[in-house]
Amino acid sequence: MGMDRRDFLKTCSLLAVGGLLFGCRKNALSEISDGLAGRIPDERLFEEEVRLALSMSRKELDLVAVPMPKALETKGEKSPNRFGMVIDMAACNGCGKCILACNRENNVPLVTEEDAARGRFMHWIEIRGGAPFMCAHCGSAPCEKVCPTGAASHTPDGLSTMMYKRCTGSRFCGANCPMQARKFNFNDAKSLGLSRQFNKEVPLRSKGVMEKCSLCLHRLQDDRLRFKTESAVAPGASAEWRGRGVKTACMEACPRKAIVFGNWLDGESPLVKAVSGRTLYAPRSLAPFDPSVLFLMEGR
């Protein structure tokens, strides 16, 4: 009798443990997701969320003067391009159209209500100190230095890129960005019905990866491929691609032309023309890292 009882207790406890470990698959979140799975959120929800974000924006920008960005120091071939943006603080009125355009262009998901209440949005652009702030694509980026898998890396063209499939979600890059420009996909947006693929050229990110402003890399890539194809087929075209004519989504959307995208190393670029004779500013904590997205202040 003693042995049977012991065996019985042992089996029961093992079953209990197994049940606890594997039986919790159905938790609260999955109940919601079953209801919402596959549902595509309405466009108005995105606009409302941007409005909410604007109303909650409280952070300020502490700007210092920085020199004009030069060519990146890369091993091997040097690229003739270094892409970046400049934001005119005098022209910006904080309307938030850039945020909405960026969200549409890059399929940025909505967030759950608790996250929204805490101000934890997925928007790549935030309004800080009355001007849009996004990843500055630093030449010597602190985030890239600490990414363990190499998912956060830098192109020779000056963009700080993100390889979503290589990301393992350690969030070290997010911790090391002095301005908290990076966003983490806490939720599986698709299964929670929070994401919408506005733009087929940009992939939807899965749960657990970091994301941030990509300077509309897909637009640059399309332009580069178009250039490569054309120049191969029609000889006599100019030798190198300078990315002229490409506009980021935020730049296109801004009604006051406060955001200018271009190529710091190209004299013909609208970016270089917009900053001629003006002093460039960057947030104080980013200045030592050689940022490519800079600010212009009123009258200076």
């Binding site: 363990p148 898998t149 290589r166 393992t168 979600g169 983490f184 996909n185 657990g208 990866v209 970091m210």
Partner: peptide, 12 residues
């Protein structure tokens, strides 16, 4: 447990 995408841990 901390990782967001646990199955990619070997990439480290």
């Amino acid at each position: 447990v901390h990782l967001g995408v646990i199955e990619n841990f070997y990439m480290v």
